[in-house]
């Protein structure tokens, strides 16, 4: 089975580095000088130089042989921003060294790869929103002496979801700035705002906020305002343009970053109730990406 793989493997492509070029030319001249002079000690060095070239070829070929690459997942990849796709890589019994796994937009480095499975994050820059296919990944290495860069394309057919852009300059200054400056007030009660007054303690409530000095006859509880804001729900039209989606994504990102709970409603498709947190953001972005 392995032999079959070996015979049917796609051809590696090789690019000789400047060092390799220098070394080859040097060996050539050295060879001419050696054969002319007939000095056996020079023959010894020549044999060594040739073996070094030979070993470089053999080791670099073996180094990227029997590679198995599979896409398993991704991190958040926004449009025109670099994110990571996660690859599961493994090799046969012969280990590989100093391997670079590259997409069109970036590379990941793996010092040693054995037959054990390794997970690597390869940077990828999404150009378009939606599901993108990465047909193949390039694996290259300079191992062992840096004479040549040997690479091979491995088919992975990975499907990556690219989220809309979140770096839009959204015209939301009025609301946003007011919020940041703390000018907005809230009528809700909670425990993280300003002091509002006292009320009677109810069984089951936390003892932490009991006002002990004013609890001579009966237990009184300190009451506070809340920082929590009203939740926002973005509504998308039935047929939103690419710009609209980018704008909404940028706003969602900004609001969630500011700590607000945000929801999303796309007419006739779905409704995501408002919430907070990174998982929620991931979900919202995924919904937007797949629109």
């Amino acid at each position: 089975m392995k032999l079959k793989n070996l015979l049917n493997r796609p051809f590696d492509r090789v690019k000789i580095t400047p060092l390799g070029r220098f070394f080859s030319v040097f060996t050539l001249f050295f060879g001419i000088a050696t054969i002319n002079s007939g000095n056996n000690l020079l023959y010894m060095i020549l044999a060594y130089l040739l073996i070094l070239l030979f070993a470089s070829g053999i080791l670099s070929t073996v180094n990227i042989l029997f590679l198995h690459v599979q896409a398993t997942g991704q991190e958040a990849i926004y449009k025109k921003r670099t994110g990571n796709i996660i690859l599961k890589v493994s090799k046969g019994k012969i280990p590989g060294f100093f391997l670079y796994f590259c997409t069109d937009t970036g590379c990941a480095f793996l010092p040693v790869l054995t037959s054990r499975v390794a997970l690597i994050k390869v940077p990828y820059k999404g150009k378009k929103r939606g599901i993108q296919t990465i047909s193949d990944i390039t694996v290259y290495s300079l191992f062992p002496f840096g004479f040549a860069k040997r690479w091979r394309n491995i088919r992975i057919d990975a499907k990556v979801i690219v989220f809309p852009a979140i770096d839009r300059d959204v015209n939301d200054e009025y609301v946003f700035r007011r919020y940041l400056q703390g000018e907005e007030s809230s009528s809700k009660r909670g425990f993280d705002g300003e002091f509002r007054g006292l009320r009677r303690y109810k069984a089951g409530e936390s003892l932490y906020h009991i006002h002990w000095k004013k609890s001579f006859k009966e237990l009184n509880l300190k009451e506070f305002g809340t920082m929590e804001q009203d939740s926002l729900v973005f509504q998308l039209s039935q047929d939103p343009s690419e710009d609209d989606i980018d704008n909404v994504a940028s706003m969602i990102h900004q609001w969630l970053k500011a700590g607000k709970s945000v929801g999303l409603f796309a007419e006739g498709r779905f409704f995501v109730p408002p919430s907070k947190g990174s998982t929620h953001e991931y979900n919202l972005m995924k919904r937007l990406a797949l629109l």
Binding site: I35, S37, G38, Y43, M44, L46, A47, L50, L52
Partner: peptide
């Protein structure tokens, strides 16, 4: 690699003439 180079040393063609 060194051992192989020593083996190659004996195999490399010698030239009976000098350029």
């Amino acid at each position: 690699i060194m051992v192989f180079s020593l083996m190659l040393f004996f195999l490399l063609p010698r030239n009976p003439y000098m350029l």
